[in-house]
Design a protein around this nucleic acid. Structure first.
Length: 513
RNA sequence: GCUCGAUUCGUCUAACGGUUAGGACAAGAGAUUCUCAAUCUCUAAAUAGGAGUUCGAUUCUCCUAUCGAGUACCA
């Protein structure tokens, strides 16, 4: 069917709030597909619902995409040959097309008020049925199909509100193809006459605006969430009604992202409930509520993207770590799975740890320098990078870098009680004092020379290595964990090491008993 | 309710009619280490159920169950 034409995809969010990770994944798959095919990626803002518009959401969406490394070829900031890319700025376009459908007999005017329809719905419900505005009932409702032409004309001229509804064909099988789900058939008798355009706000609904814009913008592939699958037949029929079937895009409906626990799709509130981010970036609502974001929690965008890419797609190999370029290289819609994927935070953390470990000391050092500065500690990037080098394989999140290195920049203020009980024995205090003198006699402390020298001294004097090392660690750091203690002493230097040992000897002295 | 979709270890998934059903995260055990991590090794863990089709079904068909989505003058 499809002649070879330029691949053009669009990510078309509506600015009703921050983009959650499901939306980011949809954008990502669009982006990967476009780049893989050497095509174009468009961002179109679908703000045709004036009621649900949220200020700031649009900027949030663009900032989030940017953070993720998803670049756009056309969009509201980038511009492009099909500008504007904000549907509210394309208002004039849609009426023309809606009218075209009325003229061709594929749509009609309807004058029923929202209240009337609500009442009908309630009534049907109370009888255990459901109301739908379809071929069976449209003849008995107020529209240009049932009313005399004169009456229709009069109503249109009176200024009363009207909508344009699609005239769904009766009892016809719509044959559709989805790149992920394969062939789907549905009979139109189960479908209703959807509203395409509303005179009240002179705005189209999603269905009309979507089809018109995809056509005008020459979109070749529509990659969107599974929640759109039920309206696919309508969209097929709209393309047909417009006479655009020859350039109709191909469709791919992505599986949903599920809650980490329990049932249902991931929702915006799950983040607060389970204590993990559902948004790429932190979000502050108008009501003053804050939702945490991956960026602020200390995730690297590359790790976040890698994790998301593998949630519902796989490369067919056992490779798990992918750079964006590698994702672009391997991505294909055929390998997208059909069933919903449950989001798993442990895996997200694992990915991040891998990426931190593979980041350069310089990059991480720069991050750490800023964190230290915020903590009132001034240091150089080089010094921070040297500290990071000692601990980066133990960090899971970027923000772990600070607690993992803080003791290298700041003497302990207290000593962990359990460690004191375990490693600061009364009988060893004398030895620690001697150890201090040993250090004092050295030119400098280094892992290469000091460690073997001191260990030999400990062995010669019957000082158990474990107690010596850990007691020293406790004196210098205040805790009994972390990387090689001699590496830390080397890092902080001889003077600082001596000062900390003096402080420990003074404060800890002899244990009470 | 109706329509559509989905169903492999706890989780993400591989195996596109023939495998001891593979990998990863998480879990458990061990090794290593001055400590804590990391690392390495090992273990446990799955085809929702039932009928077919077939020499042979995770894979194809049907039924059931479960889950999900949609059912707005929202997207």
């Amino acid at each position: 069917m499809a002649q070879k034409r330029r691949v053009r995809v669009r990510f078309a969010p509506s600015p009703t709030g921050p983009l959650h990770i499901g939306g980011v994944r949809t954008a990502l798959y669009n982006y990967l597909f476009a780049r893989h095919e050497g095509g174009d990626m468009i961002l179109r803002i679908e703000d045709t619902d004036s009621q649900r518009f949220v200020p700031g959401a649009e900027d949030y969406i663009m900032e989030a995409l940017e953070w993720c490394g998803i670049t756009l070829d056309e969009g509201i900031r980038e511009g492009g040959p099909h500008a504007p890319y904000r549907q509210s700025e394309r208002k004039e376009i849609y009426l023309k097309y809606a009218l075209q459908l009325v003229e061709s007999g594929n749509a009609y005017y309807a004058f029923d008020t929202a209240e009337e329809l609500d009442a009908l719905r309630k009534e049907a419900e109370s009888q255990g049925r459901s109301f739908s505005y379809d071929a069976k009932v449209r003849g008995s409702l107020n529209n240009s199909l049932s009313l005399p032409a004169e009456e229709v004309k009069a109503r249109l001229e009176s200024g009363a509100h009207w909508v344009i509804r699609f005239k769904m064909p009766e009892n016809e099988n719509v044959e559709m193809d989805d790149l992920i789900r394969g062939h789907i058939t549905i009979n139109t008798s189960t479908l209703d006459d959807k509203v395409l355009y509303k005179s009240a706000d002179s705005l189209p609904t999603y269905h009309l605006a979507n089809i018109v814009d995809d056509h005008l913008m020459e979109v070749s592939h529509v990659i969107r969430g599974e929640e759109w699958l039920p309206s696919l037949p309508l969209h097929y029929l709209l393309y047909r009604a417009f006479g655009w079937t020859d350039t109709q895009p191909q469709f791919a409906h992505l599986p949903l992202l599920l809650k980490p626990q329990g049932q249902g799709k991931l929702s915006k509130r799950d983040g607060d409930k389970f204590g993990f981010p559902v948004f790429p970036l932190e979000w502050h609502s108008a009501e003053g509520e804050k939702s945490i974001g991956y960026r602020e929690e200390g995730y690297l965008p590359q790790a976040f993207i890698n994790m998301l890419a593998l949630l519902g797609w796989n490369p067919g190999t056992e490779q798990e770590i992918f750079s964006m370029d590698e994702l672009i290289e391997s991505f294909s819609l055929e390998k997208v799975s059909k069933s919903g994927a449950r989001f798993n935070q442990d895996k997200a953390k694992w990915f991040n740890a891998q990426y931190i470990r593979n980041s350069s000391d310089e990059f991480l050092g720069a991050q750490l320098k800023d964190m230290l500065a915020a903590h009132g500690i001034d240091t150089t990037v080089e010094r921070a990078a040297a500290a990071v080098a000692l601990i980066k394989e133990r960090a899971v999140l970027l923000k772990d870098l600070l607690p993992l290195t803080l003791y290298m920049f700041e003497a302990p203020k207290s000593y962990d009680e359990k460690s004191v009980a375990k490693f600061w024995k009364a009988e060893d205090v004398e030895r620690f004092a001697t150890l201090r003198e040993k250090f004092a006699g050295l030119e400098a402390i280094s892992v290469a020379e000091t460690e073997p020298f001191i260990c030999q001294w400990a062995v010669d004097n019957g000082f158990p290595l474990g107690r010596m090392m850990n007691g020293l660690r406790l004196a210098v750091l205040g805790i009994s964990q972390g990387p090689s203690i001699f590496a830390i002493c080397e890092f902080i230097g001889k003077e600082e090491t001596l000062a900390r040992m003096d402080a420990a000897l003074a404060k800890l002295g002899c244990p009470a008993e």
